[in-house]
Design a protein around this nucleic acid. Structure first.
Ligand SMILES: [Mn+2]
Ligand SMILES: [Mn+2]
Ligand SMILES: [Zn+2]
Ligand SMILES: [Zn+2]
Lengths: 139, 139
DNA sequence: ATCCTAGCTTAGACTTCGTCTAATGAAAGA
DNA sequence: TCTTTCATTAGACGAAGTCTAAGCTAGGAT
């Protein structure tokens, strides 16, 4: 998500200060924030920013394909600005820590034709689960 | 999840009529119901069954490993009684239809050691996405 | 068979996460 | 600068799930 202002203009987006702050909060962060975490961080620069605008903007960024929406635990959604490099996620069952990971092959290749039920299959994402070093230690 | 009463007794579960009805509602259903769908169906046999008991029972079944908790869309969780046969899921982006699918290899084998961040990686689940035959037709 | 008690069930309040509404504000082209 | 169209906002609302506290009951003990 670098040079996001350029990309957003390309999408014919009206550039507002709010959208700029939200997008820059995501930009470069190799993390997976919740909407409320993004609001909190963005509010450090623009205290009057509203929750509704954060949700609106995130949903638009997802629709434009500039951000990925993740949902590991059935609780709050998380937003991933790392959309350029295909990757998957590894999550700690103990503490919820999340890492980006890369597989040695494309998982789409592992789904045989007779398992596709006539679908046009477009993508595959893998969630790996386990225990991080700290949580292994702590039983 | 066949012969679930036997299994539940093995887990030292107190067998109540409510738990029996809920478990039998899941049993044999090769689908992925939401908690409310399970409540609705179970209520056909036991109209006074409460929502809280459905949630309690499902959470316990998940903790016991008798049912899988799925969360595809960030909305309501779904419950999968097909816990015996390792499988993955294929979801239609158009209508939300969900299919069980099987891959030709174990995805754990495709995560190299240097991508594991010191985690003890225990399992991997793949979500395939695409469009079902009906939704392909309809653009 | 009956008693006892730990654990189960229940209604409804509550929490969390997210969407919607309708009034106000402002970006950007003319 | 003017105008139009779209964005922002506070707060109400909704959906999904958890919690509480009071009553009930499964199943072991007697
Ligand atoms: Mn990521
Ligand atoms: Mn399944
Ligand atoms: Zn951990
Ligand atoms: Zn479909």
């Amino acid at each position: 998500m670098s040079d996001l202002v350029t990309r957003l203009r390309r999408h014919q987006w009206r550039m507002t200060p709010q959208r700029r702050v939200i997008a820059e909060t995501l930009d470069g962060a190799h993390v997976h924030y919740t909407a409320d975490e993004i609001l909190e961080r963005a509010c450090e620069r623009m205290p009057e920013l509203s929750r509704a605008t954060v949700y609106n903007t995130l949903n638009e960024l997802v629709a434009l394909g500039e951000v990925l929406e993740l949902n590991f635990d059935g609780r709050s959604k998380r937003y991933d600005p790392n959309v350029d490099h295909e990757h998957h996620h590894l999550i700690c069952d103990g503490c919820g820590a999340t890492k980006d990971v890369h597989t040695v092959a494309d998982p789409l290749d592992w789904l045989p034709g007779d398992e596709r039920h006539g679908f046009a299959v477009a993508k595959a994402s893998i969630t790996f689960r386990g225990r991080c070093p700290e949580c292994r230690e702590a039983r």
